[in-house]
Computed example of a mutant assay.
Amino acid sequence: MSGSDEGEASGRLPSTMTPAQCRAARAMINWSTGDLAAKVGLDEALVRSFEKGMGDTPSGQIEALRSALVRAGVIFTNDGSAGVRLGQSGADEGTRLDSLTTENDR
């Protein structure tokens, strides 16, 4: 199985989104750093810092940014190298693991 949720050979979990993927995804849907930050309620400076590869952005905040981009139709790929492509707008990324219940786990 391949994909961004699969662990690397070293046993570390891969980054959910690279700074380059974030910049490319925003460009595809014509969003500014401010647009993306506003979608998830984060500071624009955090988005700019992450995209420049500065600091140590918490993985939860990176995942929030990624989820907003996915909801806008961006598809993250990792078939040999990390990339992005534009899919159907408003794509459903499914039910998150921590949200599964006996009712929705079908």
Rank of each mutant, 00 (worst) to 15 (best):
G3Y: 13
T95G: 08
G3W: 11
E6N: 07
K39G: 01
L100M: 13
G41L: 07
Q21H: 04
A72R: 03
G55T: 08
T77L: 03
S4K: 09
D79V: 05
M54N: 13
V40E: 03
F50H: 04
T95N: 15
R26W: 02
T101S: 13
Q61Y: 10
M1P: 05
R106V: 00
G34V: 09
V74I: 15
A25L: 04
S15C: 14
L13G: 11
A91T: 10
W31K: 02
A91G: 07
L13C: 11
G55W: 08
A20K: 08
K52A: 15
G3C: 10
T95D: 12
D105Q: 13
G41S: 06
A82F: 08
A25G: 05
A91K: 10
A25F: 05
I29N: 00
D35N: 15
E103G: 13
A27H: 11
D98Q: 14
P14A: 11
M28Q: 13
A64R: 12
G83A: 14
M17G: 02
W31P: 01
D79S: 11
L36K: 02
D5E: 14
G83I: 00
S99V: 00
S89G: 12
R23N: 07
T101N: 04
F50V: 03
G3Q: 13
R48Y: 06
D98T: 12
R26I: 04
T57C: 15
R12G: 05
R48M: 09
T95H: 14
A20R: 06
V40M: 01
E8W: 06
D35A: 11
T16E: 09
L69E: 03
L100R: 15
T33V: 03
L97Y: 13
I29M: 01
E103N: 11
S89A: 15
K39V: 02
G90T: 07
R96S: 09
E44H: 07
R66E: 04
A9V: 09
R96V: 00
S67F: 04
S10T: 14
W31L: 09
N104I: 05
S49A: 11
N78P: 01
T101H: 05
S15V: 15
